[in-house]
């Protein structure tokens, strides 16, 4: 009489163990590329303006900006009166573990911010680097970076 119960138990255990488990949510977050808690892009409420890669450095970059920034890039220049804010985030690339044929953001390299206040001609450039986004005080090369950021073309977004 007990045999069917044993059989049932064995079948249920084997079925249970053979079922694939859902992946824990934390394993599906791209931790390498995630920003530290000290800096939140999403809280800036800027929109994506451009995205590009550098195959020599193996990096990938996205450029965010507010409405003023979008106008500044479209006009390929900045007018003295309009304020804007641009944010450039750069990562090393890594192979996409889910798709052979794709690369996705890997280790976070830097966040650069370029802002212009209302009625002020001066541009303010700030660079935060490394996984913890530590502020960089060295100003060498800042001019080149400002020109580079302002030279980016916005994406075609119908």
């Amino acid at each position: 009489m007990r045999t069917p119960y044993y059989l049932l138990a064995i079948i249920s255990v084997s079925l249970f163990t053979s079922c694939e488990q859902t992946t824990p949510p934390a394993e599906l977050i791209n931790k390498k590329a995630s920003l530290p808690g000290t800096f939140s892009i999403s809280d800036l409420h800027q929109r994506l303006l451009s995205s590009f890669y550098n195959t020599k450095d193996n990096t990938n970059t996205v450029l965010y900006g507010d409405k003023g920034a979008e106008a500044a890039l479209q006009k390929h220049g900045i007018s003295a009166s309009s304020p804007f804010s641009l944010t450039l985030v750069t990562w090393h690339q890594q192979e996409d573990p889910h798709w052979f044929g794709a690369r996705i953001p890997g280790d976070l390299i830097s966040v650069e911010r370029l802002t212009k206040a209302d009625g002020d001609d001066r541009l303010s450039y700030q660079k935060l680097a490394g996984k913890q986004l530590i502020a960089i005080k060295d100003t060498v090369g800042n001019g080149d970076r400002i020109r580079f950021i302002l030279a980016q073309q916005p994406l075609i977004q119908p």
């Binding site: 994506l48 995205s51 990938n60 794709a102 690369r103 996705i104 953001p105 977004q157």
Partner: peptide
């Protein structure tokens, strides 16, 4: 969608496109 946040990008060298996931 153009006002949403970017949650990843994908450099698709298999088909010569670049993608942004919002």
């Amino acid at each position: 969608y153009k006002n949403w946040q970017v949650i990843s990008t994908s450099d698709r060298f298999d088909n010569g496109t670049m993608r942004v996931i919002y």
